[in-house]
Design a protein around this nucleic acid. Structure first.
Ligand SMILES: [Mn+2]
Ligand SMILES: [Mn+2]
Ligand SMILES: [Zn+2]
Ligand SMILES: [Zn+2]
Lengths: 154, 154
DNA sequence: TATAATGTTGCATACCAGTTGCAATAAGGA
DNA sequence: TCCTTATTGCAACTGGTATGCAACATTATA
C-alpha cells in the first residue's frame, strides 16, 4: 500500500511537524512503520518494512529518524534482555508506561501495566528528588508455558 | 540466611569453585576486580584494572569471564541508559535488587532500594505467572542538583 | 510559482563493543 | 606425575550503529 501524501498524518508525524521539523517522504514512511507496528521492532526490521513502502530508503535514515524520535521522547528504546545480539527495539511511547517481560526459553515478550509500578515511579520522584524522563523495567525469566515444561527451547 | 552478608573478598571465586569450575590466575584477577569495584564498570574499564594486576590478561578473557558470571547469575548487566555509547556495565548481584537512576545531564548514577519494587516483582510473578530470574529497572531523568540549575551539561 | 536558505538524504566508510576459530597452555583429578 | 579437558591469547571477524560529504528536497519568502 503506497502512502498517499493526502493521508491523515499519524500522531508521530503531527508531533514532529508541530515542533517545526521537516517532513520528508522517508520520514513519513518510517513514522508510519513505527506507528502501525504490532510488535517491538529493531532497526533492521524497521528498515525492511520501510523498504517495502519506499525501496530506496537507506538504513542511516532509519537510524537518524530513530535518533530524532528518541531525542523528542516520542519512542522508547528497549533492550529486551539482549536475548538475540546487542540490537535495540523500539515502540511508540505509550500513554502509560509498561513493564516488559522476556521469557528466556521461548523468547516471548509480554507487556504488563501496574499500579504498583506507577506508585514506584512516584516514590522515586519524591524520595530521590529525581525528575523522571524515561523508565525501562525489563524482567527476564520463564513464562507460564515454559515454567511447566522441560522441553528444549521452542 | 545461612551465610554472612558481609563483603568477603573471594565470594565470587568460592561460588564458581563450588560449582566445579576451574580457577585460573586470570579468573581470580578478574573476579577480584569485580568484587572490589566501588562503581559500575564496563568491560574495558574492567580490563584496564585487571591488567594492573596481571598485565598480560586479554580482553577476550574478560568477556568470557563476564559471560560465565552472567550465566551463573553472579553478576548483573546494566545499560545505564546507554548514555556514553552502547557499552554495558556490571556489578555483583546484590542481596536485594535495586533501581538505577541515571542523570541525563551530569551522568551521575544513583541506586535506590524500594519495598514497592519488591512488591511489584511479587505481583509480576503472581499475576503474570512469570518466574523472575533477573530484573533491570533503569530510570533516566534529572537529579536534584541538575533539576534546579539551567547550566549546559557539565 | 520561482528562488533562496537550510535541513535531510544516500553512499561510502569508519567505528565500537563484543564474538569466534584455533593452537598453545594450564588446571585438577587419577 | 601424567592425562584429560577446560581455558587462554592471538588474530580475525561480526553486527549494530555513527559520520563526512556532496547531492538533493523541503519550506519560507518573494
Ligand atoms: Mn543495551
Ligand atoms: Mn512495549
Ligand atoms: Zn516462554
Ligand atoms: Zn545530575
Amino acid at each position: 500500500m503506497p502512502l498517499p501524501e493526502t493521508e491523515i498524518p499519524g500522531r508521530l508525524q503531527a508531533e514532529l511537524m508541530s515542533r517545526g521539523l521537516r517532513m520528508t517522504r522517508q520520514r513519513r514512511t518510517i513514522l508510519s512503520v513505527v506507528e502501525t507496528a504490532k510488535q517491538h521492532l529493531d532497526a533492521s526490521q524497521l528498515l525492511r518494512r520501510a523498504r517495502r513502502l519506499d525501496p530506496q530508503i537507506d538504513r542511516v535514515t532509519v537510524y537518524r529518524t530513530l535518533g530524532l524520535l528518541k531525542r523528542h521522547g516520542l519512542i522508547d528504546e528497549l533492550d529486551l534482555m539482549h536475548m538475540q545480539g546487542e540490537k535495540h527495539f523500539y515502540e511508540r511511547r505509550p500513554q502509560r508506561d509498561h513493564i516488559h517481560m522476556a521469557c528466556l526459553r521461548c523468547g516471548k515478550i509480554t507487556e504488563f501495566e501496574s499500579d504498583l509500578f506507577d506508585r514506584l515511579k512516584g516514590q522515586i520522584q519524591r524520595d530521590c528528588r529525581f525528575h523522571i524522563v524515561v523508565t525501562r523495567l525489563e524482567v527476564g525469566g520463564y513464562c507460564a508455558q515454559c515454567r511447566t515444561t522441560d522441553q528444549p527451547k521452542d
